[in-house]
Protein backbone atom coordinates (compact mmCIF):
# COMPACT_ATOMS: atom_id res chain seq x y z
CA UNK A 1 0.00 0.00 0.00
CA UNK A 2 1.12 3.54 -0.62
CA UNK A 3 2.01 5.41 2.53
CA UNK A 4 0.68 8.93 2.12
CA UNK A 5 -2.53 9.23 0.14
CA UNK A 6 -3.69 12.28 2.05
CA UNK A 7 -1.92 14.72 -0.16
CA UNK A 8 -2.91 15.52 -3.69
CA UNK A 9 -1.00 13.41 -6.15
CA UNK A 10 0.78 16.42 -7.66
CA UNK A 11 3.00 16.15 -10.74
CA UNK A 12 1.72 12.80 -11.95
CA UNK A 13 -1.87 14.06 -11.89
CA UNK A 14 -2.25 13.84 -15.66
CA UNK A 15 -1.19 10.21 -15.74
CA UNK A 16 -3.52 9.34 -12.88
CA UNK A 17 -6.48 11.09 -14.47
CA UNK A 18 -5.81 9.26 -17.73
CA UNK A 19 -5.74 5.96 -15.89
CA UNK A 20 -8.98 6.78 -14.06
CA UNK A 21 -10.69 7.67 -17.34
CA UNK A 22 -9.52 4.42 -18.91
CA UNK A 23 -10.78 2.43 -15.93
CA UNK A 24 -14.08 4.32 -15.90
CA UNK A 25 -14.63 3.45 -19.57
CA UNK A 26 -13.93 -0.21 -18.85
CA UNK A 27 -16.26 -0.17 -15.82
CA UNK A 28 -19.07 1.36 -17.88
CA UNK A 29 -18.63 -1.26 -20.59
CA UNK A 30 -18.56 -4.09 -18.06
CA UNK A 31 -21.65 -2.75 -16.29
CA UNK A 32 -23.70 -2.56 -19.47
CA UNK A 33 -22.58 -5.99 -20.66
CA UNK A 34 -23.53 -7.39 -17.25
CA UNK A 35 -27.00 -5.82 -17.36
CA UNK A 36 -27.47 -7.00 -20.93
CA UNK A 37 -26.46 -10.59 -20.07
CA UNK A 38 -28.46 -10.71 -16.84
CA UNK A 39 -31.50 -9.00 -18.39
CA UNK A 40 -31.61 -7.15 -15.09
CA UNK A 41 -29.89 -4.34 -13.28
CA UNK A 42 -29.71 -0.62 -12.66
CA UNK A 43 -27.69 0.84 -15.54
CA UNK A 44 -28.60 4.49 -14.92
CA UNK A 45 -27.19 4.48 -11.40
CA UNK A 46 -24.20 2.34 -12.40
CA UNK A 47 -23.17 4.94 -14.95
CA UNK A 48 -23.72 7.99 -12.73
CA UNK A 49 -21.53 6.51 -9.95
CA UNK A 50 -18.78 5.12 -12.20
CA UNK A 51 -16.39 8.08 -12.18
CA UNK A 52 -16.67 8.36 -8.40
CA UNK A 53 -15.84 4.67 -7.97
CA UNK A 54 -13.00 4.76 -10.50
CA UNK A 55 -11.45 7.82 -8.86
CA UNK A 56 -11.68 6.29 -5.39
CA UNK A 57 -10.10 2.97 -6.35
CA UNK A 58 -7.51 4.27 -8.83
CA UNK A 59 -6.65 7.67 -7.40
CA UNK A 60 -7.58 8.00 -3.74
CA UNK A 61 -7.95 4.89 -1.59
CA UNK A 62 -5.27 2.76 0.08
CA UNK A 63 -5.90 -0.94 -0.26
CA UNK A 64 -4.30 -4.21 -1.26
CA UNK A 65 -6.63 -6.34 -3.41
CA UNK A 66 -4.73 -9.45 -2.33
CA UNK A 67 -5.49 -8.66 1.33
CA UNK A 68 -9.10 -7.48 1.29
CA UNK A 69 -9.41 -7.78 5.09
CA UNK A 70 -6.24 -5.86 5.90
CA UNK A 71 -7.23 -3.99 9.09
CA UNK A 72 -5.58 -0.78 7.90
CA UNK A 73 -7.30 -0.55 4.52
CA UNK A 74 -9.43 2.39 3.48
CA UNK A 75 -13.07 1.37 3.13
CA UNK A 76 -15.74 2.19 0.56
CA UNK A 77 -19.35 1.54 1.50
CA UNK A 78 -21.67 1.65 -1.50
CA UNK A 79 -24.91 2.65 0.19
CA UNK A 80 -26.76 2.71 -3.13
CA UNK A 81 -26.25 -1.03 -3.38
CA UNK A 82 -28.31 -1.27 -6.55
CA UNK A 83 -25.30 0.13 -8.40
CA UNK A 84 -23.72 -3.26 -7.76
CA UNK A 85 -22.79 -3.65 -11.43
CA UNK A 86 -20.47 -0.66 -11.29
CA UNK A 87 -19.06 -1.76 -7.92
CA UNK A 88 -18.29 -5.30 -9.08
CA UNK A 89 -16.71 -4.02 -12.29
CA UNK A 90 -14.58 -1.60 -10.27
CA UNK A 91 -13.45 -4.28 -7.81
CA UNK A 92 -12.60 -6.65 -10.66
CA UNK A 93 -10.59 -3.95 -12.46
CA UNK A 94 -8.85 -3.21 -9.15
CA UNK A 95 -7.80 -6.86 -8.85
CA UNK A 96 -9.99 -8.11 -6.00
CA UNK A 97 -11.29 -10.96 -8.16
CA UNK A 98 -11.01 -12.11 -11.79
CA UNK A 99 -12.79 -10.04 -14.41
CA UNK A 100 -14.45 -13.17 -15.77
CA UNK A 101 -16.61 -13.37 -12.62
CA UNK A 102 -18.53 -10.42 -14.05
CA UNK A 103 -20.21 -12.59 -16.68
CA UNK A 104 -22.00 -14.46 -13.85
CA UNK A 105 -23.75 -11.30 -12.60
CA UNK A 106 -27.13 -12.31 -11.11
CA UNK A 107 -26.98 -15.76 -12.67
CA UNK A 108 -28.13 -18.65 -10.44
CA UNK A 109 -25.70 -19.16 -7.53
CA UNK A 110 -23.40 -16.39 -8.71
CA UNK A 111 -21.37 -14.66 -6.01
CA UNK A 112 -22.45 -11.45 -7.70
CA UNK A 113 -25.95 -10.91 -6.34
CA UNK A 114 -28.06 -7.96 -7.46
CA UNK A 115 -26.95 -6.26 -4.26
CA UNK A 116 -23.46 -6.77 -2.83
CA UNK A 117 -22.59 -9.27 -0.07
CA UNK A 118 -19.26 -8.93 1.70
CA UNK A 119 -19.24 -12.63 2.58
CA UNK A 120 -19.28 -13.56 -1.10
CA UNK A 121 -17.25 -10.89 -2.84
CA UNK A 122 -13.72 -9.76 -1.89
CA UNK A 123 -13.58 -5.99 -1.54
CA UNK A 124 -17.24 -5.49 -0.67
CA UNK A 125 -17.47 -3.86 2.76
CA UNK A 126 -21.21 -3.84 3.52
CA UNK A 127 -24.31 -5.78 2.53
CA UNK A 128 -26.32 -2.87 1.23
CA UNK A 129 -29.53 -2.81 -0.76
CA UNK A 130 -32.17 -1.25 1.45
CA UNK A 131 -31.45 2.47 1.26
CA UNK A 132 -30.23 4.55 4.17
CA UNK A 133 -27.98 1.85 5.63
CA UNK A 134 -24.54 2.80 4.33
CA UNK A 135 -23.94 6.06 6.17
CA UNK A 136 -24.62 4.61 9.66
CA UNK A 137 -22.28 1.70 8.87
CA UNK A 138 -19.61 4.11 7.62
CA UNK A 139 -19.95 6.15 10.82
CA UNK A 140 -19.31 2.98 12.82
CA UNK A 141 -16.21 2.16 10.77
CA UNK A 142 -14.93 5.72 11.18
CA UNK A 143 -15.39 5.50 14.97
CA UNK A 144 -13.50 2.17 15.04
CA UNK A 145 -10.63 3.80 13.13
CA UNK A 146 -10.54 6.69 15.59
CA UNK A 147 -10.63 4.44 18.68
CA UNK A 148 -7.62 2.55 17.32
CA UNK A 149 -5.86 5.67 15.99
CA UNK A 150 -5.54 3.53 12.87
CA UNK A 151 -5.66 6.37 10.37
CA UNK A 152 -7.71 4.61 7.74
CA UNK A 153 -10.51 6.49 6.03
CA UNK A 154 -14.08 5.61 5.16
CA UNK A 155 -15.85 6.66 2.00
CA UNK A 156 -19.56 6.15 1.47
CA UNK A 157 -21.56 6.75 -1.69
CA UNK A 158 -25.25 7.46 -1.40
CA UNK A 159 -27.79 8.40 -4.00
CA UNK A 160 -29.59 11.72 -3.69
CA UNK A 161 -33.12 10.30 -3.56
CA UNK A 162 -31.77 7.96 -0.91
CA UNK A 163 -31.37 10.92 1.42
CA UNK A 164 -35.13 10.85 1.89
CA UNK A 165 -34.47 7.95 4.29
CA UNK A 166 -34.37 9.30 7.86
CA UNK A 167 -31.59 6.98 9.02
CA UNK A 168 -29.13 9.07 6.97
CA UNK A 169 -29.89 12.09 9.12
CA UNK A 170 -29.46 10.13 12.35
CA UNK A 171 -26.01 9.20 11.08
CA UNK A 172 -25.23 12.67 9.73
CA UNK A 173 -26.00 14.12 13.16
CA UNK A 174 -23.76 11.58 14.89
CA UNK A 175 -20.89 12.15 12.44
CA UNK A 176 -21.06 15.92 12.91
CA UNK A 177 -21.30 15.60 16.67
CA UNK A 178 -18.29 13.29 16.79
CA UNK A 179 -16.29 15.38 14.28
CA UNK A 180 -15.42 12.31 12.21
CA UNK A 181 -12.68 13.79 10.07
CA UNK A 182 -11.83 10.39 8.58
CA UNK A 183 -15.28 10.07 6.98
CA UNK A 184 -16.26 11.28 3.52
CA UNK A 185 -19.77 11.03 2.10
CA UNK A 186 -20.08 11.32 -1.66
CA UNK A 187 -23.61 12.04 -2.82
CA UNK A 188 -24.24 10.83 -6.37
CA UNK A 189 -26.39 13.86 -7.16
CA UNK A 190 -27.98 12.78 -10.43
CA UNK A 191 -31.32 14.42 -9.51
CA UNK A 192 -33.38 11.37 -10.48
CA UNK A 193 -34.84 8.63 -8.33
CA UNK A 194 -36.61 5.48 -9.41
CA UNK A 195 -39.93 7.08 -10.30
CA UNK A 196 -39.28 10.74 -11.06
CA UNK A 197 -37.09 13.76 -10.34
CA UNK A 198 -36.00 14.00 -6.71
CA UNK A 199 -37.22 17.61 -6.71
CA UNK A 200 -40.70 16.55 -7.80
CA UNK A 201 -40.91 13.66 -5.34
CA UNK A 202 -39.63 14.96 -2.00
CA UNK A 203 -36.94 17.53 -2.58
CA UNK A 204 -33.66 17.19 -0.70
CA UNK A 205 -32.54 20.78 -1.27
CA UNK A 206 -30.94 22.85 0.15
CA UNK A 207 -28.62 19.88 0.43
CA UNK A 208 -25.34 21.63 1.23
CA UNK A 209 -26.99 23.80 3.87
CA UNK A 210 -28.49 20.74 5.50
CA UNK A 211 -25.12 19.04 5.89
CA UNK A 212 -23.41 22.26 6.98
CA UNK A 213 -26.10 22.64 9.65
CA UNK A 214 -25.25 19.10 10.82
CA UNK A 215 -21.59 20.05 11.26
CA UNK A 216 -20.11 18.87 7.97
CA UNK A 217 -17.70 20.42 5.51
CA UNK A 218 -19.47 20.57 2.14
CA UNK A 219 -18.06 20.88 -1.36
CA UNK A 220 -19.91 20.85 -4.68
CA UNK A 221 -18.08 19.38 -7.66
CA UNK A 222 -18.57 17.81 -11.07
CA UNK A 223 -18.92 14.12 -10.22
CA UNK A 224 -17.60 13.08 -13.62
CA UNK A 225 -14.32 15.01 -13.27
CA UNK A 226 -11.62 12.76 -11.77
CA UNK A 227 -9.32 15.67 -11.03
CA UNK A 228 -12.03 17.52 -9.11
CA UNK A 229 -12.89 14.33 -7.22
CA UNK A 230 -9.23 13.79 -6.31
CA UNK A 231 -8.95 17.37 -5.05
CA UNK A 232 -12.06 16.93 -2.92
CA UNK A 233 -11.18 13.50 -1.56
CA UNK A 234 -7.45 13.84 -0.80
CA UNK A 235 -7.53 16.47 1.87
CA UNK A 236 -4.78 17.71 4.14
CA UNK A 237 -5.16 17.29 7.89
CA UNK A 238 -6.77 19.78 10.22
CA UNK A 239 -10.33 19.85 8.90
CA UNK A 240 -11.83 18.30 12.06
CA UNK A 241 -15.19 17.66 10.39
CA UNK A 242 -16.75 14.96 8.27
CA UNK A 243 -16.71 15.77 4.56
CA UNK A 244 -19.74 15.83 2.28
CA UNK A 245 -18.95 15.90 -1.43
CA UNK A 246 -21.99 16.73 -3.50
CA UNK A 247 -20.96 15.12 -6.78
CA UNK A 248 -23.16 16.50 -9.53
CA UNK A 249 -23.69 13.68 -11.97
CA UNK A 250 -25.85 12.61 -14.88
CA UNK A 251 -27.80 9.40 -14.55
CA UNK A 252 -26.83 7.14 -17.45
CA UNK A 253 -23.65 9.18 -18.09
CA UNK A 254 -21.76 8.21 -21.24
CA UNK A 255 -24.63 6.67 -23.21
CA UNK A 256 -26.64 9.28 -25.10
CA UNK A 257 -30.03 7.62 -24.99
CA UNK A 258 -29.74 6.82 -21.25
CA UNK A 259 -28.54 10.19 -20.01
CA UNK A 260 -30.93 11.90 -17.60
CA UNK A 261 -33.75 9.49 -18.46
CA UNK A 262 -35.70 8.17 -15.50
CA UNK A 263 -36.70 5.05 -17.47
CA UNK A 264 -33.07 3.83 -17.39
CA UNK A 265 -33.06 3.51 -13.58
CA UNK A 266 -33.65 -0.09 -14.38
CA UNK A 267 -33.91 -1.05 -17.98
CA UNK A 268 -32.14 -3.50 -20.22
CA UNK A 269 -30.69 -2.46 -23.57
CA UNK A 270 -31.47 -4.31 -26.79
CA UNK A 271 -28.54 -5.71 -28.77
CA UNK A 272 -28.61 -2.68 -31.06
CA UNK A 273 -28.73 -0.32 -28.08
CA UNK A 274 -25.84 -2.18 -26.44
CA UNK A 275 -23.77 -1.91 -29.63
CA UNK A 276 -24.48 1.79 -29.84
CA UNK A 277 -23.53 2.26 -26.19
CA UNK A 278 -20.21 0.44 -26.70
CA UNK A 279 -19.48 2.56 -29.74
CA UNK A 280 -20.20 5.79 -27.86
CA UNK A 281 -18.15 4.72 -24.86
CA UNK A 282 -15.20 3.70 -27.02
CA UNK A 283 -15.00 7.29 -28.24
CA UNK A 284 -14.78 8.75 -24.70
Amino acid sequence: MTSSPWKSTGSDRTAIVTKIRDKARAIRMHSLNMVYAARLGHPGGDLSATDILATLYFGVMRFDPKAPHDPGRDRLVLSKGHASGALYATLAEAGFFPVDWLSTYMKPKSLLNGHPNRNYVPGVEANTGPLGHGLPIAVGIAIASQIDHAGYRVFVITGDGELQEGSNWEAAMAAGHRKLDNLALIIDRNTLQQGARVAETNDVEPLGDKFRAFGWEVVDIDGHDPSALIDALTWPGGRAKPLCVIAHTIKGKGVSYMEDQVSWHHGVPTKAQLDQAMKELSLT
Binding site: A126, H133, I137, V139, G140, I141, I143, A144, A171
Partner: peptide
Amino acid sequence: GVGSGLAN
Protein backbone atom coordinates in the same frame (compact mmCIF):
# COMPACT_ATOMS: atom_id res chain seq x y z
CA GLY B 1 -25.76 0.46 11.66
CA VAL B 2 -22.91 1.94 13.71
CA GLY B 3 -22.61 -1.40 15.49
CA SER B 4 -22.20 -3.15 12.15
CA GLY B 5 -19.57 -0.62 11.09
CA LEU B 6 -17.65 -1.08 14.34
CA ALA B 7 -17.59 -4.82 13.67
CA ASN B 8 -16.21 -4.09 10.19
